[in-house]
């Protein structure tokens, strides 16, 4: 449960999106000592598309959804396509929401994006932040955007370090979350029927 999970929507190999995800993960893990798992959406692209038509995940996608749902902290990185996150990135979180609408509720998330120029850096706050707010994640105040030029300029390591520090603090602060006690069966949380019925009679 104390895994730090990176979701990278980079498409090329090697990809600067993945590179940014790795940097952020290493910086965060330096604080928390959490194990890091990286999920490359490229490898799941076909299963994600199939989920959209069939309504259920294939084995590799199910495994990734489980990992993200159980993550103590999440680092999400997307390239900017057409002024927003990539379609693959969004589809993964669409599928996650359909799988379990509470999958990210209360999960600390660090948002990050890459692009050719700095002109799209507000994509973090105009696109990614609302998406994760909708999923009821706790989004770290600092998002990290890396344009191509940033890889040869000053400032990126500091932003990575600041964001990682925030994610580490959120992860530590929220790790004591205790789910409400309910009878459990078959891995589901059950609201006793009498309670369901009573709620309608109020």
């Amino acid at each position: 449960m104390n895994e730090l999970v990176v979701v990278s929507a980079g498409l090329s190999v090697p990809s600067s999106t993945r590179l940014l995800g790795d940097r952020l993960a290493a910086a965060t893990a330096a604080h928390t000592g959490a194990e890091v798992r990286v999920i490359e959406l490229r490898d799941l692209a076909v299963e994600i598309a199939h989920h959209l038509t069939s309504g259920f995940p294939g084995p590799a996608l199910a495994d990734a959804l489980d990992a993200v749902t159980g993550a103590a902290g999440l680092i999400v990185v997307t390239p900017v396509f057409s002024a927003s996150y990539s379609g693959l990135f969004k589809s993964f979180f669409d599928v996650l929401g359909a799988w379990d609408k509470d999958a990210l509720a209360g999960t600390p998330v660090l948002i990050a994006a890459t692009g050719g120029t700095a002109r799209h850096s507000l994509v973090l706050d105009h696109a990614l932040r609302p998406l994760f707010a909708y999923l009821r994640a706790v989004v770290a105040p600092t998002g990290v955007y890396a344009a191509s030029e940033d890889w040869g300029a000053e400032g990126l390591p500091e932003r990575v370090e600041r964001a990682a520090g925030e994610l580490a603090a959120l992860t530590a602060g929220l790790s004591g979350r205790v789910p409400a006690a309910r009878p459990e069966a078959g891995g589901f949380t059950v609201v006793p029927f009498a309670e369901q019925l009573a709620a309608l009679r109020d």
Partner: peptide, 22 residues
């Protein structure tokens, strides 16, 4: 019919356990 066995198993397990509970 459109679902993997693992999911079906969990739903039925839930129903069976709650059936006994009641």
């Amino acid at each position: 019919i459109f679902w993997p066995a693992d999911h079906t198993k969990r739903m039925i397990e839930l129903y069976r356990n709650r059936w006994a509970h009641y």
